[in-house]
Design a protein around this nucleic acid. Sequence first.
DNA 1: ACACATTCGAGAGCACTGCTCTTGCTTTGG
DNA 2: CCAAAGCAAGAGCAGTGCTCTCGAATGTGT
Lengths: 234, 234
Amino acid sequence: MSSTAKGVRARARMEVTAAIKDEARRQLAAEGAAKLSLRAVARELGMVSSALYRYFPSRDDLLTALIIDAYDSLGESAEAAHAKAADAGPVQRWTAVAEAVRDWALRHPHEYALIYGSPVPGYTAPDTTVPSASRVGLVFIGILREAHGTSGLIEPAPLPAALRPEAERMTADLAPDLPPASVAALVASWAELFGLVGFELFGQFNRVVEDRAAFFRHAVGRLAREVGLVDGQG
Amino acid sequence: MSSTAKGVRARARMEVTAAIKDEARRQLAAEGAAKLSLRAVARELGMVSSALYRYFPSRDDLLTALIIDAYDSLGESAEAAHAKAADAGPVQRWTAVAEAVRDWALRHPHEYALIYGSPVPGYTAPDTTVPSASRVGLVFIGILREAHGTSGLIEPAPLPAALRPEAERMTADLAPDLPPASVAALVASWAELFGLVGFELFGQFNRVVEDRAAFFRHAVGRLAREVGLVDGQG
DNA sequence: ACACATTCGAGAGCACTGCTCTTGCTTTGG
DNA sequence: CCAAAGCAAGAGCAGTGCTCTCGAATGTGT
């Protein structure tokens, strides 16, 4: 067999696929998802538009690939922030990860809109995206779990009867070692955190909040207390 | 002068404009903002596409009109829920309005996406939308204000120095009669509330939260406590 | 090593979009 | 009553996603 047995084609395919995604990401960052055009991508890459369909069977498939990459990029940022704050207390770790999420969103507004804004209408994300989409959430679960092991987690008020079954179901799925009330509070805070980021990013804070960084820091600190995180010394 | 002096044309214009918006709203609800097509609207109305430009100079202008209508529709729902719960305590009023927002969102997902999801890329809402967009927020401010007058509002923990100027600025703009710490908490909870709604609507709760109604109810109750609302008996 | 099968790039073409411009007809106001 | 403004219609431009066909390059089984 030759030195690159089946490689010469497979490798070229990899490279072209990557080039397409890179150029698409460029257009996405520059103009937003709606103005991402397969023809423009192909044009920029010096190929004809129909050739591009050998790599992505449709525009939606290209978008899906970009969505997965965006989730991974955000997840990496969150994980990196978590690792960097490994020596700090639970509240500080929580805050650090939250700020990493916000920073990433401000740095990649169109990609954030792609994954957390309204999904491109008529399009529903396939299951392929689930693992990448879960990464940020897992970081927050990790913070709670660590805090729970070092008395840095105060169990919140007992759950009302109406929510107990749901909370126990979530707990079994997400973190069986944590109290259901904490898991329920975490999931709520998780959604609320992205509410804060989204409102800032999508202009809802215009004419309302000026010092967004300070406001976000404070709100995120309240969320940490809300899930029961405390900076115990020991 | 005739019975409808300048009315015959002006009135026809009104009617056609309304018909266009109605048909556009239909398409918006059916297919989403991205698939809203001026040509399709015109086709459905039995006119040619170029005629439609006499009423809306561009597709974005049509969308803006729909956005304003959506804000008003949501605002009306919130105001109605508030009025209906006028006799209840502050926490119940808060919860009623929050549930009205969620119900409206579930009933009009594409319109919700239009106003609270990622803005249609390349498009920034003009100032015309501000009054309609403010209505929901004003309802929540009203609840706080009423509660403040009837000892139904507990002032939250004092603000950190870093947020005090911003909180005082917001207070002066939004509700000078309320404590800055309460106003800051309200704005945060406002964003967080829409985070909860958005996560449910845009599929982020798939595979995570099952009983969304119960979960939302509980989370919204916590938000009410977070802003300091209590159901005092007096 | 040869023949068969698969993969790929290119081009033409279809149906659709937002938007502009011109051509006439109708309503309006002086 | 007549000029001015408002209006619907049609043709047309540039762009889009996507499909199909056709050679050429690149694989694979015998």
